[in-house]
Structures are given as structure tokens and as C-alpha cells.
Design a protein around this nucleic acid. Structure first.
Lengths: 196, 196
DNA sequence: CCCATCTTGGACTGATCAGTTCAAGACGTG
DNA sequence: CACGTCTTGAACTGATCAGTCCAAGATGGG
């Protein structure tokens, strides 16, 4: 049974991440994690550390995976900022529509639960969550927006993007989610037309 | 010590509601509720039922209290729909700024945690959460918006309103929260100007 | 003044939690 | 083939969980 690691780290981290994502930190027990990953408790502890350490790794994994997708979506912001923001939202809409992955958003739900997390974990969550706004601000400024408008739209788009996960989990249909982003994309297009 | 109820039901329900609101269902133990309300465990059970029943009463209390405020804010929608929506957002912004009350939103965080709640409670949460959209749709139509636009803006405004609690708990400043709603209010004003 | 009634506090139950420990045993090396 | 090393499974610990129970005692009606 041993001598060599019996599992693939990426597979295990994905399984743990999805477990936290579906149920949240508080409602995910080590037995749940053991069941989801197929690893024994002591294997989890020896290979991945305690629950907080594993949770942090899952948060980072989530932030990196979707952060990269958000960056890719915004990469065309200089040429077509409206298309870039649309693609940005499509990352989230696609994720919500993906049956291989839970609905909701690990970041949003961790932020909501942050008062119940250990202080250091809570701070880390807020840091990762806060990456979205500067990402958007930079893209919007590259797209020709004024500093002030880029600031306002960046925080607005970050908020709307985050709201999709909550609305989706509350039972909103894909059409309703598209309507939510539609209002924002229209407003962005109008704001950009006024300047350029 | 007994013979007559030793507590005020409204005070107790407020204390329990705030406890659930601050920490969420999963991270609120009966000891927490006992400490917050000043009531003993057996008093809670005999007067308020089990944890789920108490949670439902707190959800209803929350939905009624702020639902009434939202209705009042929207009551001027027929005359000035933009001012009505602004007042609608001000209910949430005021609640977030109120130090007497936790940040976050009991409904939003309960929706996010719904997969971990008992099915009947989860359904009740979604029902209460879903009241916001028709409230807004009716107001916007009374304000002269087309059916389609009212539908889209209603779900958008409900989403943005909900996002404020998450962004606030993530550490966004009051100015940033105002910027989030500003984009939506501007878009609404423009949409209404086009028609009328 | 006394007794039935009801609230209350605290102890208790069994389940579940995160985290630890350790023997069993599989592997790679020599 | 033998031995040291490392993973693994399962049992264990003390804490905490939701929920129950009951005796103590305060109240109000008679």
C-alpha cells in the first residue's frame, strides 16, 4: 500500500477544491475531504497539511485557474474593451453553466463566510478577492477609458461578476444572468462611445 | 425564575437574527444563540423550537423588515423611478453603514450556503430571496419602462443590490459601493430617458 | 397560604468534529 | 533476498455539536 505516493496531486487538489466550492469551508469535514479525494486522513495531513493549509491551497488554485481565464478574456481590452468585458463575464457564465463544476463561487462564498474563518485565512481570501478590481481597471484604461470611469466601472463589473454566482445559486436562469450582464455591458459601451 | 416568560420575544428574535446574520447558519451554534439571546437552551427549544425553526423565523423577520423598507423606497417609482431605485440602493447602503448591524446580508449568505442547509430551509431561503425581482419589476413598470426593459433591469438591480453586501464584507469602501450603484443608476436613467 | 403550572438552569446523550498516533505493509536499494 | 523508508488505514483523543430531560423554583389562582 505504500512506499510510493498512491495518488496524483492535481487530481486530489481538484477534488478538494470542488468539495470546498460546493459546501464551503464550515460544511466540509475532513471525512468529506477524505471521501472526495480518496485519501485517508493521515495521508491528507502528511501530504497537504491541516484543513486550513489545504483550504488555502484550494483558494490559490481557484484564484489562479480562473484568474488566468479572466486575464485571457481581458487581453483584447486595448482593441475592443466592450468585447473584453463581455468575454470576462463569459468566463463566469461558462463556469456556472459547466455541469462538471459546482455552481456558486468559492471566492464569493468564502468572503461571505470570512467572519467565521481564522483571521489569517480570512485575510488571504480578501486579498485574492481583491485581485479582480485592479485587473479590470487596467484593462479598461488600456481600452481608452478615463481614470475615473475605469475605476468606477472596474468595481461595478467586479461586483456584477460576483453577483452572478449568487444569483445562479439562488435559481436564476441563464437568460436572467445574461440580462444582468447585458445592462452592464450596454452601460460600458455607452460610456466608451461618449469619450471616443 | 419562572412562571412568567422572562424575556421580550422581539429582543430575543433580533439577537438571534443578528447572530445568524453575522456568522451564518453553519457557524452559529446553539451555545452562540443562547449567549446572544440570554436564553437557556431549553428556553430556546420550548419557546422557539429547534435550530431550523428559529432560523426560519429569523429569515422571515429579516425579509419582512428590509422588504418593507425596500417597498417604501420604491413607492415613488411611478413619479420618479430613478429616485426610487436610488432610494432602494440606499436601504442596503445604509444597512451596511449601520454599525448596530453586521455587514453582509443574511439572505445572500444563506443562499450561498443553501447546499449545506436542509432542503426545506434552502427552498424557503430561495423563495424569500426571489421576492426582490418582482418587487423591482413592478416598480420599474410603474415608472414607465417597457416590459422587457423592466424585466432586465429588475434582475440587474436585484443582483447589484445583493453584490453590495458581498463587496462590503470583502472590504470595499462606501465610495466604491456608491460607484457600483452609480453605474446602474446612470444606465437606468439613460434607459428611461430614451423611452420617455 | 397552598398547590398546580410553567419557565429556567444545568447536566446529560450520542453524534461528529479536527487532529494525532502507530502498527502494518509496500516499495526501492543494496 | 533483506532492510530502511515512507505511505497508508484505522483506532483514538478531547472538544463541540444539536437536542433531551429533569429537578428547582417562581408565579398566579383559588
Amino acid at each position: 500500500m505504500a512506499g510510493k505516493k498512491q495518488f496524483d496531486m492535481d487530481t486530489v487538489l481538484d477534488a478538494a477544491m470542488i468539495q470546498f466550492w460546493r459546501s464551503g469551508y464550515a460544511d466540509t469535514s475532513l471525512d468529506d475531504l477524505s471521501r472526495a479525494t480518496g485519501l485517508n486522513r493521515s495521508s491528507i495531513y502528511s501530504s497537504l497539511g491541516d484543513k486550513d493549509a489545504l483550504f488555502l491551497r484550494c483558494l490559490d488554485r481557484y484564484a489562479t485557474r480562473y484568474g488566468d481565464k479572466f486575464d485571457a478574456a481581458l487581453s483584447c481590452a486595448a482593441e475592443d474593451p466592450v468585447a473584453a468585458v463581455r468575454a470576462f463575464f463569459d468566463v463566469t457564465l461558462g463556469r456556472i453553466a459547466d455541469p462538471a463544476v459546482p455552481d456558486g463561487c468559492l471566492m464569493a462564498q468564502s468572503v461571505m463566510a470570512s467572519p467565521a474563518l481564522s483571521p489569517s485565512v480570512a485575510e488571504h481570501v480578501k486579498e485574492l478577492f481583491g485581485l479582480q478590481r485592479p485587473r479590470l481597471r487596467t484593462a479598461l484604461k488600456a481600452g481608452g477609458m478615463s481614470d475615473e470611469n475605469a475605476e468606477d466601472f472596474a468595481v461595478h463589473v467586479a461586483a456584477v461578476n460576483q453577483s452572478l454566482a449568487v444569483m445562479g445559486r439562488a435559481g436564476s436562469s441563464p437568460e436572467q444572468l445574461r440580462a444582468i450582464v447585458g445592462v452592464t455591458v450596454d452601460a460600458l459601451a455607452r460610456a466608451l462611445r461618449q469619450v471616443g
